[in-house]
Write a protein that binds this DNA or RNA. Structure first.
Lengths: 220, 220
DNA sequence: GTCTATACTTCGATAGAC
DNA sequence: GTCTATCGAAGTATAGAC
């Protein structure tokens, strides 16, 4: 058989293909991110996709890893910042990364390699979170026997993620009340430093401020 | 053009096709629920799919509606039961309906008709929930100025749903602690009647008790 | 690195026989 | 109501010219 070649990691075209795939997945779902359409969006021919990525699974995996690494770095920064809990709460509210993650969860449902990768990442992510929150709550003097740090972590990120998903769908009933309650709670154990310009903004965007629809292109 | 015919609502074959589609979506994701494979699983020929459902979108829509109606009836019963909050909490823990819903959310991302239907259903669902929880908290004497019923509803169902999704993925870190905290909280405002055989079970299945994989049958 | 050309598969959907 | 047969479109992937 003929020896196949594969493109370098730092290629400009490779990056363009990953960007194109991410955009399509966000706008139309993972099923729409086919080799032909990814190539078209990146402005190249379909064969190039298979030059840089042997299979479509390889492309999905590469895209996932790129986002996962970025997320881990983002979280690391958030946890080291001024008000870590507030940052952790806002973290899951990023619509794009949350929506992309939802697509990968759906993908994982029937792609073994994606599922394994997703699980490994999620566990790593959560372990870091729980460790950081544990130290934080102790430092804040919260009674962690009644309010376990692991539970706090799961609850905070769960709410954050569901809200993001629902906003993407156009559902906002109960959101304002939820955000108000969570932020009041957070302020109670992690008070914002008043008059600190670098602190995270207090007027967290409410559901009403956000666009109701996420992607531009619906299906024709 | 030739006049097309369509099968009756109460057909046995129609039901078999919907069941087959649901199974495939659960086990391998919505993208795998193609006309050919749904037909094969139902034991009929692909053309029959288009006899009962004009397009695949029609099939997805019919499947969604069937599940949505069942969910609404289930919730109605749960809210009228002995310990409504506990039931509401356990409701989202049903792995199958939660996983199916996740698939439809992904589907909605690039199918306009699904998205509209999903949104309408979700709003209806949540409105009923919030209304019921509002009455409940008032009856229980909870201070609803500090703890808004809408927020309580969103938070409880969010946690429930994320846990179900994560269990499907194989991620359980922090689950036991979360379940413990939520149930302790619920017991505080809605105490279980001791010695009542009909009351919901107290030993709620923890993450460890649940199977790590969701679907029964893998692909042959 | 990027292209053309192509092989092979699977998809959705329809027409028309039975 | 269910089938066979078939269409055109779109998918993944590869070989080989440039």
């Amino acid at each position: 058989m003929t020896r196949r070649r594969f493109g370098a990691e730092d290629s400009q075209t490779r990056r363009a293909l990953l960007d194109a795939a991410a955009q399509i997945m966000l706008e139309e779902g993972y099923a729409a991110a086919t080799s032909r359409r990814v190539a078209a969006r990146a402005g190249v021919k379909p064969a190039l996709v298979h030059y840089y990525f042997r299979t479509m699974d390889d492309l999905y995996l590469a895209l996932f890893r790129r986002g996962a690494e970025a997320n881990l770095r983002r979280q690391e920064k958030a946890l080291a910042a001024d008000r870590p809990l507030q940052h952790l709460w806002e973290f899951g509210n990023d619509p794009d990364s949350t929506a992309l993650m939802a697509e990968f969860i759906a993908l994982a449902n029937h792609r073994k390699t994606i599922k394994a990768e997703l699980l490994a990442y999620a566990e790593r992510f959560r372990t870091i979170q729980i460790k950081a929150v544990t130290e934080l709550l102790n430092r804040y003097g919260v009674d962690t026997t009644a309010f376990h740090p692991a539970a706090a972590t799961v609850i905070l990120t769960s709410i954050s993620r569901i809200l993001a998903i629902e906003v993407g769908l156009g559902l906002t009933a109960g959101h304002a009340e939820t955000i108000e309650l969570v932020e009041r709670f957070l302020h109670g154990i992690e008070p914002p430093r008043t008059g600190d310009a670098d602190a995270p903004t207090d007027d967290h965007p409410t559901a009403e401020d956000r666009p109701t629809a996420r992607g531009p292109a619906e299906r024709e």
